[in-house]
Computed example of a mutant assay.
Amino acid sequence: MEPAIPEHLVTVRTRHRRVGAEYTPPYPCFVARHNPSVSQVVMAYFGLQFRPGRETAAAVPLAAIAQVFSEQDGPGHWDRARCTDEEGFVNVVSVAYWNDPARFQNWFAAHGAGWTENEPADAKLGFFTEILKPAVERYETLFSASDRAEGVAVIADGMSGMVREHAYWGGMRDRIPLSQTDAMEPAGAPRVVKERDRLRIIPQDNLCLIRSGQDWTDTEPEERRMYLEEVEPVLRSGMDFLRDEGLSCGCFANRYMQVIDVEGRPIEKSFGVSWWKSLSALERWSESHPTHVAIFGAAMKYLSSLGPAAKLRLYHEVTVAAADQQFFEYRNCHLKTGMLKAG
């Protein structure tokens, strides 16, 4: 059993963990391990927004961003997903990760900064860029299996052995290295400013982002049926609540996304990605809100019925970003897009 926080990030605690050293989790989970030389990563969401039926026009900028990801200093990993938002617009997001912010800055100056300048003449498309550049002390990961990485974990060196800090309320916080000494409480409030034809967010301190995913590619037919018929509808209901009413519990924005390949074909993977006022707000929703209690109950019933034979893979990454580690820019997007809702 390993501690979730790697040895080189362990410091003298001034804040207590939620469980003691004698705690043993009921099932195995794993975390991503970066090389100790990695001190900061980049999580960049390049979004395209359009009305249904505009897929042909949307294909041009989507192909362009995929192409420039392969240019010098491009991301170590990227993937793509789509959803329909609360206003009925399709949102396709290409999510890219770097383990070197200097390389990201070089690439972004050459290729990424122009993303929100796109406007094909034959269609009205919206473009947005949502970027976090957290120090490694400010985020954590968790995986139900150690042999397939997703998201930021793909650019890590590998996975840990089984870790202790999971399967209890508060484990998410306990896995974030900064939690050893800092409550990570929010400061300030995000606000929208207009710069020419773009809207930008002046960020708050300690904004929280979670990407939480599901992978059912390896499931046998009966397990796939159980997941898609008994668990996924409950998950979707909770994701829809956060999308439509999340502000009531501190969630600024939520997207429940279907992973797709570069040709736009769905893959048997999904993830929710949501922006929160604070880690505390995310914790309160997770621990006590009826929508998440229902998700948790459906998942536990599913997993307890299958036991070790379950092949569904689950993961998440949670980040608490300082104000100077955030960048949000929107062009030609409706005002409920992403962090625009927060302003």
Score class of each variant (00 low, 15 high):
D261C: 02
I5D: 01
R18M: 13
I210L: 08
F89M: 11
V192M: 14
K133M: 15
T181P: 04
R15G: 07
F252C: 01
L125D: 01
H316Q: 11
L9C: 06
W78M: 13
E22F: 10
V193G: 08
E130D: 14
Q72H: 12
T116V: 12
N118W: 13
G88I: 00
R255E: 13
A121T: 14
L209R: 07
F143C: 02
F50A: 02
I295F: 07
A4H: 08
R191G: 09
N35G: 04
S146E: 14
E329Q: 12
G88R: 01
A123V: 05
G297F: 07
L282S: 09
A113W: 11
F328T: 00
E71F: 15
V95Q: 13
V152Y: 08
A323N: 03
T24E: 15
H8W: 13
K124E: 15
S278F: 08
D73K: 03
G88F: 01
Y168E: 00
G307R: 06
E245K: 12
R15P: 03
P134G: 04
F296G: 13
V31Q: 01
P3D: 11
V10N: 11
V273I: 15
F328L: 02
V42F: 02
P308L: 00
G158E: 11
H292N: 09
I176H: 08
A63G: 10
F327R: 02
N332P: 04
E222Q: 14
F271S: 00
Q325W: 08
R243P: 02
T14E: 06
A167K: 06
E245T: 08
T319K: 03
V293G: 02
